[in-house]
């Protein structure tokens, strides 16, 4: 009998499989397909201080080995999430959750995180710093170490629960951003968010996405994500949640060998709503195949010397 248990900042998970924010809604649609209590946990739809409609449609475009999305953080706002979505989630998910938070100023992050931090259903906060900062010419918090440090520091000051910072891969040096977050007190790092891309409709000769650009995710980004997790693991001591293109049990093991303590599964949920259950069901056999008894022990196993 293999052991799939892992832990994130003292929080024990039955297994490392976590559906990624934005690909799993509040879990309700997936609960129609399977009992989602088999998951390690899940990171629910990104929450902002205020309600957001998001971008105009089309918001989705397909590409080789994946897809682009430009949903634009559609969500009902933190107060509605706390009043309605958290109680609703309790009906079909009994474990603690990851609250993914976005903001367009440090103040917005702080307010939204402080409110979610008080909720007993929230196990940890995952702060998405890929959003543009309205007070800094729209420059993303996640593209500059100083801005990443500031938002991390400010959020940490108001939260008792572990704070993980979710990094954007659209940077020259992701390691320096990860280090800045760790220096500011981050309890862990999530990576990677989507890679910015675009598609053009040949007939219309116009971008397919109404937003012109969107985030690329799916199996095509896996090697990029793996490389970044590997590099960040060498530079920081805090735990890493690895994500980007994971769609089978072998990918989970590979990502953990690169340095992840747990993984998130994103775009694969949209193509196959049962994928996380399938990964969890097949993981023990794949662990046995590669001689792994305790999954948590393989984190960073590909690093030597």
């Amino acid at each position: 009998m293999v052991n799939m248990k892992v832990s994130l900042s003292g929080w024990q998970l039955d297994n490392p499989i976590i559906p990624a924010s934005g690909t799993f809604g509040y879990g309700k649609e997936f609960a129609e397909f399977y009992d989602i209590n088999c998951l390690g946990t899940f990171s629910f739809k990104g929450t902002t201080l205020n309600e957001r409609f998001g971008n105009p449609t089309p918001r989705i475009a397909e590409c080789p080995a994946g897809m682009l999305n430009a949903v634009g953080l559609q969500n009902p706002g933190v107060e509605h999430v706390i009043a309605h979505e958290l109680p609703e989630m309790k009906k079909y998910f009994s474990k603690k959750l990851i609250a993914n938070v976005s903001g367009f100023s440090v103040e917005e992050y702080v307010k939204a995180c402080a409110l979610l931090d008080r909720e007993e259903q929230v196990g940890l906060l995952e702060v998405n710093i890929s959003c543009p900062n309205v007070h800094n010419g729209g420059m993303s918090f996640g593209t500059e170490p100083k801005a990443a440090y500031e938002v991390t520091k400010a959020v940490k000051a108001v939260c008792k629960k572990p704070v993980y910072i979710k990094l954007s891969p659209n940077v020259t040096d992701i390691v320096s951003i990860a280090k800045a977050c760790e220096d500011a007190g981050a309890d862990g790092i999530s990576l990677i968010n989507t890679l910015m891309g675009m598609r053009i409709d040949l007939k219309a000769r116009r971008p397919i996405l109404a937003n012109t650009t969107g985030g690329y995710s799916g199996p095509g980004v896996f090697p990029v994500a793996l490389r970044m997790v590997y590099q960040v693991y060498e530079a920081v001591k805090v735990p890493i949640i690895g994500m980007g293109g994971i769609s089978r049990a072998e990918d989970v093991i590979e990502m953990m060998l690169a340095g992840a303590s747990a993984v998130e599964v994103g775009a694969a949920n949209l193509a196959d709503p049962m994928i996380c259950k399938k990964i969890i069901d097949t993981l023990p056999a794949v662990m046995e195949k590669y001689g792994i008894d305790n999954l948590s022990e393989i984190t960073g196993g590909a690093h030597h010397g």
Partner: peptide
């Protein structure tokens, strides 16, 4: 009709505004 991501209501890829609030075309 809409360009959909998941087709079962999870991704918010096909949301439109209506007089009765936001609606996902797929769900």
């Amino acid at each position: 009709e809409a360009r959909m991501g998941c087709g079962f209501g999870a991704c918010m890829g096909c949301t439109c505004k209506t007089h009765k609030g936001n609606k996902r075309i797929c769900k």
